[in-house]
């Protein structure tokens, strides 16, 4: 490849060329370059590039494991507690936000005495460099109650709409869950899984009205029919819903009339009781499909589901549902 006899004077390139060079690097490399100097970080910040147009920044919050800020598949920076550092002599001090932090530059793990401060500082540093919000959050089962509380407060303060949130509720408190459902807007994908707090009781919130893409809930005991009727989401999967045959029938009639979930493409409910199909479809004027007729439905570009038989109903605009 090129000779290493002299450096390549990257920042002497015209701005438009520099932007093209940045497009030929990966987001993790952009972050590494940003740590070369304050000026490097500033130049990157004010140089346009395709990475700034994407909204791919995400946080993976994990209590016992290092938390991670990614750009799509690229790991940008990890956040660990300083006690996790094996050999601090190998670490390089870098400035992240207002803090000077030891970093293992071979894998970009940052070490913090206060890991939560680290999570916030790393998120804000990366957002500043890419001039973009972190829009995707994976709050894993390892995340502690304290971390979850902190991140919910931080998200609410951003006063923005996030795209995706996968929340494992194992360690979330009732108070924090209510706070999340009331104050944080998720526009595309909202998945709540794991155990809900035992003391959790439904309180009024707007959670259901926002997502347009996918809602997936492992525990839907707190879901009410009024929630479903406020939703306008393409894919809905909720387990352990408390709905009755009559309520389902009422919902389907509203869907037929075009008064409920107009975007809906896929709806799956899990029930704790056995339902009565006849009661559910009463008055829907549908057609029973024999079980030996097997049909495939494309849910995502790369995913299909197979339905043997079923019961076809038609919406007032001609859209069919099985």
């Amino acid at each position: 490849m090129t000779s290493t006899s002299s450096p390549f004077p990257l920042f002497h390139l015209p701005h438009v060329v520099l932007s093209e060079v940045f497009n030929s690097t990966t987001p993790d490399e952009i972050i590494r370059i940003s740590f070369c100097s304050k000026r490097a970080a500033l130049i990157i910040k004010y140089t346009s590039g395709k990475w700034k147009k994407g909204k791919e920044l995400e946080l993976v919050l994990q209590g016992t494991q290092p938390s991670v800020v990614n750009y799509d598949e690229f790991l940008l920076l990890s956040i660990s507690h300083i006690s996790e550092a094996e050999d601090q002599r190998q670490l390089v001090n870098l400035k992240i936000g207002e803090s000077i932090v030891p970093v293992d530059t071979s894998n970009m793990v940052t070490y913090w005495a206060d890991k939560l401060k680290g999570v916030r500082s790393v998120m804000e540093y990366v957002m500043d460099i890419f001039n973009s919000e972190i829009e995707t959050f994976y709050i894993t089962k390892n995340a502690t109650s304290t971390e979850i509380h902190y991140i919910f407060q931080w998200m609410a303060k951003r006063k923005t709409v996030f795209s995706v949130c996968f929340l494992n509720c194992n360690n979330v408190t009732t108070e924090d869950l209510n706070f999340f459902l009331r104050n944080i807007q998720i526009s595309k994908v909202a998945c709540l899984y794991g155990r809900f707090p035992e003391t959790y009781r439904y309180q009024r919130n707007l959670f259901w009205t926002f997502p347009r893409g996918l809602v997936n809930l492992e525990n839907g005991l707190w879901m009410r029919m009024s929630h479903l009727l406020t939703m306008n989401c393409r894919f809905i999967t909720v387990m352990n819903v408390p709905f009755t045959n009559k309520e389902i029938n009422c919902f389907l009639k509203k869907w037929q009339a075009g008064e409920a979930c107009p975007l809906l493409k896929y709806l799956q409910f899990g029930f704790e009781i056995l339902l009565n199909l006849e009661e559910m479809v009463k008055g829907l004027d549908g057609v029973k499909v024999p079980d030996d007729i097997i049909r495939e439905y494309k849910t995502f570009p790369d995913k299909t589901i197979t339905l043997p038989g079923g019961y076809d109903i038609k919406r007032n605009d001609g859209t069919m549902a099985t």
């Binding site: 390549f8 030929s24 070369c36």
Partner: peptide, 27 residues
Amino acid sequence: MDYCCRVIGDMAKDKTPEELRIIYGIP
């Protein structure tokens, strides 16, 4: 331009900030 940028971008592959400072002559 795309090809030259690719060559310049490749210089950053798997490099630490300290190495990048030298490779790209960043003060």
